[in-house]
Design a protein around this nucleic acid. Structure first.
Lengths: 215, 215
DNA sequence: GTCTATACGAGGATAGAC
DNA sequence: GTCTATCCTCGTATAGAC
């Protein structure tokens, strides 16, 4: 990010000294760093370097590294929750509900591919201490409910809703975790390109629906 | 191989000064620490504390933290490779081959649940630099080959082998990654208990086979 | 081979000028 | 609000006795 000189306003009318803009820049850079390294291994210097602003700005706006981390966590999670929670899935038949749920989930993480990485670092390193029982747990619970309804109604084959919910989440999210390891397995295809993300959405939904359907 | 002749013995007949035993203890503790925190965030002090031996032993046997990490990676990976690679899957029909593959994979990671976490950290933090194109990639390739044969023969429904391979790995491995976050969702059931691990193996295989089968 | 004590650098956090 | 310079803790790695 190239910084403007001492002028108060840039040519686009955007303040050079702009608290909210600076916060946003820091948050974006922090999300990237935390996604790759997790809380402990993330370096505030690296975050500052990505933004172009001084390292001390992090402490000015977010108190300390932990505060910045919390902010990133809450922001990312709010996005995911909102995408999935207000869909009125209870009133749909199980298979349609599952498809809607998966579509919303996959669209959300496709827009923000760093989210799964952040969640998993938090889950493994910190055993999810910072998730206050409201966020990722409630998403899991929604999925479990759909699966329970599906098995009860006979739309789905007999399966354990709890175990299957975990496995289904894995089918959707592992793609984003493994992406760093895999890169362009077939030559030239970036995993995070729009085309590949759309294909992943299709393939994951197809695999899961076929996997649970009574057939 | 050869035992040290001058080793002192404790009352239980176990050497008090035993190089190989000490290395093994360190490796075990290190695997745990690296699984939870990854290379950078892992603390040598924490590893030493778990073992009970002095911190300097790590450097004596493994040169530095990086050396210890490499040793853990190689060890873990050799186990996984051996479990899966020598199964003669080429000579089995696709569906049987897939089931054999999944069984071997799931048995291996059930025996060593830390392995997926280690792989995950390495993949994200270090973009898999330390995997020398031979290990995890070859496992993926095996799975892709099975899927290609299955779609070609018509045993499997039309699917993208590359994308599906990732999603299938996710179905199997996510369970271990998310375990820290989920703990005992239903009260009293530990995710890593023998019973739950066996159930996960069954559920994952069932989900995947149903998901790919032409039906 | 194993321990205790310590040197040294990296990185989180603060002070104070502008 | 933003920067530069600095402090100080923590963690890696080494030295040297036993």
């Amino acid at each position: 990010m190239a910084r403007q000189a001492n002028a108060e306003k840039s040519s686009k009318g955007k303040s050079v000294r702009d608290a909210e803009a600076t916060q946003a820049i820091i948050l974006a850079a922090a999300a990237e760093e935390f996604a790759q390294h997790g809380l402990t291994a993330a370096r505030t210097e690296a975050i500052a370097a990505k933004t172009g602003v001084a390292k001390s700005m992090i402490y000015y706006y977010f108190k300390d590294k932990e505060g910045l981390y919390q902010a990133v966590l809450e922001r990312s999670h709010a996005d995911l929750l909102q995408s999935v929670q207000q869909l009125g899935l209870e009133h749909l038949p199980p298979e349609a509900a599952l498809e809607q749920f998966l579509t919303a989930l996959l669209n959300c993480v496709s827009r923000n591919p760093k989210l799964p990485m952040i969640m998993f670092h938090e889950a493994i390193q910190n055993r999810g201490k910072r998730y206050k029982r409201s966020s990722s747990l409630s998403i899991d619970t929604m999925l479990i409910n759909i699966l329970e309804r599906g098995t009860a109604s006979g739309a789905f084959r007999p399966l354990d809703p709890f175990q299957s919910a975990i496995n289904i989440m894995g089918t959707c999210l592992f793609y984003f975790i493994g992406s760093g390891n895999i890169q362009q397995h077939p030559q030239g295809k970036r995993l995070m390109s729009k085309a590949m993300l759309e294909q992943h959405t299709q393939e994951a939904i197809a695999l899961i629906l076929a996997g649970v359907r009574r057939c």
